[in-house]
Design a protein around this nucleic acid. Structure first.
Length: 492
RNA sequence: GGUACCAUAGCCGAGCGGUUAGGCAGAGGUCUGCAAAACCUCCCACAGCGGUUCGAAUCCGCUUGGUACCUCCA
């Protein structure tokens, strides 16, 4: 690898050098969505964060296996015994097969991810397809003596585990505090201690998602799927485990405990957590009922939205903040992102049209390698996408200078410049020009005809006609701009 | 209450001990029949109080304010 990446590890609360377990290969597991509702803005944060990491690791030469699960069983709506599976509940409400619900929302999720230009993960395993692996893991933990059976359910024995390991090492908690701070919930009589968590839950008669097991007809517990599936596809010890900060405790903490109990090894080397998207300073979340669906962004239908925002605007908006910072939703912020992205895209289209000269001016010749170096430096420093964007903006000054023929650039340097810009903008940040490619030959021909007529009117100083054409086209969301180089048009 | 973390110009948002972040908005200008857009220039902030240091937005302590997790959550 020609780049040294430093990555913030939640486990050590420090940036560490990224050194994968197997040189040249990188394994990354990310907690995916529970498919019981439409994807909302909150879902895009981890998706974009780990898409960025995936893209960058690949770019610098790692062979990356990126695993992101689909949770279609097992997440309880409330507390243990009184709880009902989220998918099952939705299925009951909508009178659908549970798998129909899961499939529907999985499709919706995929559609949104595609629009946001996410690369698909290498493997996207479903919890429901890995019941056997999860049962095996339960048995291993039972065999290790770190779980107990209670009324058909299997619970992880946190207290016993803690005798030889440290439960709470990831989230910085100590067991004694957990004990005194755990709320008294209903139906905890099955547990020996309130902080124990379920590995297998016996299904109540009305529970429609259930599988046979040695312990009971039931379903796997909250945290088990990620442990089982990551081990299956990435090995018992892999490189990166990612997810939202809200999953730190108890989800990831429990994953560590389960994996250590079952496999005698911690699941991963680097824990990476993205921060939350907030609305008016508060976390955007399903449970707080303050989330905005992605579809609502795309059509502008949510009351908090002043307008519709494209997928790329959202992607850019998110990339403009570092993944470990909270990001507050605002119309101002999104509108700023929309304009800023447009400027970068315009700059790139200008860059593509630059005609090279014999030689490159000295200042520019110095800039081009430093531009590339700074972009790599930013990405190497814990994937600092806002800094990459700042560097792209710095380069636009040179692009405009070239466009106005203030500088000269050689063919080779122009290629390097274009390559650097395009690599970071499109390959690594994963931005795209949504508008391009929409215009058919017919449209192109029609527009050329209309603009020729308008130009004729202008030449004849018939501004009434030329303005009429411009205004009427504007009503069709086609914007005409008279520039020095000629007339340009674009569809909004 | 416990645990983690944050506080940067009108707004968003980098910064990790010493020289410009960047974007949006705003002001001036260039271009233009007029628009619009674009481009150029300008706008120098770090919650408060102490401390460490030759030097602190950056390290330490305290205070204030805020967030997340401790129950499903991206």
């Amino acid at each position: 690898m020609n780049q040294k990446i430093s990555i913030y590890n939640t486990l050590s609360r420090k940036k560490e050098n990224f050194e994968p377990i197997n040189p040249l290969f990188a394994g990354m597991y990310v907690c995916g969505p529970t498919v019981y509702g439409d994807p909302h803005l909150g879902h895009t944060r981890p998706a974009i964060t780990f898409d960025l990491i995936f893209r960058y690791l690949q770019h610098v030469g790692y062979k990356v296996r990126y695993v992101r699960n689909i949770t279609d069983v097992g997440h309880l709506e409330n507390d243990a015994d009184a709880g009902e599976d989220k998918i099952a509940k939705k299925a009951r409400l909508e009178k659908l097969e549970p798998m129909e619900v899961a499939q529907y929302y999985t499709n919706r999720y995929h559609d949104a991810m595609r629009l946001l230009n996410m690369l698909p993960p290498s493997i996207e395993p479903k919890a429901s397809g890995h019941i056997i692996e999860q049962m095996d893991m339960v048995q291993k933990i039972l065999d290790a003596g770190l779980a107990y059976i209670s009324n058909g359910s299997v619970y992880f024995d946190v207290k016993k585990y803690n005798e030889h390991h440290k439960y709470g090492k990831l989230s910085g908690r100590v067991l004694e505090d957990l004990y005194s701070n755990t709320r008294a919930l209903d139906g905890q009589d099955e547990k020996q201690n309130p902080y124990d968590f379920a590995l297998w839950k016996k299904a109540s008669p009305e529970h429609i998602m259930r599988w046979s097991s040695p312990w009971s007809d039931g379903f796997p517990g909250w945290h088990l799927e990620c442990s089982a599936m990551s081990a299956k596809y990435l090995g018992e010890h892999f490189d990166i485990h990612g997810g939202g900060m809200d999953l730190l405790f108890p989800h990831h903490e429990s994953e560590i405990a389960q994996s250590v109990a079952a496999n005698k090894v911690e699941p991963c080397k680097y824990w990476v957590h993205n921060n939350m998207i907030t609305v008016n300073g508060q976390k955007m979340g399903k449970s707080l009922n303050n989330f905005i669906n992605l579809e609502q962004f795309f059509n502008g239908s949510h009351p908090l939205l002043e307008q519709a925002y494209t997928a790329m605007t959202i992607r850019f908006f998110i990339l403009q903040a570092h993944y470990r910072s909270t990001l507050d939703f605002s119309n101002d912020g999104l509108q700023a992102a929309e304009k800023a992205l447009k400027r970068l895209l315009i700059a790139y289209s200008l860059l593509e049209k630059i005609v090279p000269a014999e030689q490159t001016d000295a200042d520019l010749a110095a800039f081009i390698p430093s531009f590339s170096a700074k972009c790599y430096e930013a990405m190497n420093d814990d994937f600092n996408s806002p800094l990459v964007i700042a560097n792209l903006f710095d380069s636009t000054r040179w692009i405009h200078g070239l466009n106005e023929k203030k500088f000269n650039i050689s063919k080779a340097d122009l290629e390097t410049f274009t390559q650097t810009f395009s690599t970071f903008m499109f390959d690594i940040l994963g931005l795209t020009n949504e508008a391009s490619g929409e215009n058919t030959q017919t449209t192109e021909g029609l527009m050329n005809l209309i603009l020729a007529i308008r130009q004729e009117a202008k030449t004849n100083k018939d501004f009434a006609t030329s303005d009429k054409i411009r205004n009427e086209l504007q009503k069709l969301n086609i914007t005409i701009k008279d520039t020095k180089e000629g007339v340009s048009w674009s569809v909004e």
